[in-house]
């Protein structure tokens, strides 16, 4: 679907996605391949502590790419787990 650049976006939509339920052993290549398919990635922060394992922040360059990724990857089955993808508030 063509993304209209002048489409009004709800306020909670932003370029930082908070992802939960990732496999603990996920690699940079896997994250960049999965999320990078939706657009340029500015930065990824992956949880490496006991209380952050399996979570990540994925920052996109473009807000429409972030929305597209959030819509398509929420509930996506990756490695046998369903991803939770939320807009970072």
């Amino acid at each position: 679907m063509a993304t209209l650049k002048n489409q009004r976006l709800p306020p909670e939509v932003n370029r930082i996605l908070f992802v939960k339920n990732l496999p603990f052993k996920i690699t940079s290549a896997e994250i960049y391949e999965l999320f990078g398919a939706y657009g340029g990635i500015r930065q990824v922060r992956l949880g490496n502590a006991s209380d952050t394992m399996g979570t990540a922040f994925v920052v996109y360059d473009d807000i429409f790419d972030a929305r597209n990724a959030c819509e398509h990857l929420s509930g996506y089955n990756f490695g046998g787990r369903y991803l939770v993808v939320l807009y970072h508030q």
Partner: peptide, 9 residues
């Protein structure tokens, strides 16, 4: 973004 508990990939 948090820096403790997270690493920049």
């Amino acid at each position: 973004l948090p820096s403790d508990g997270y690493e920049i990939l």
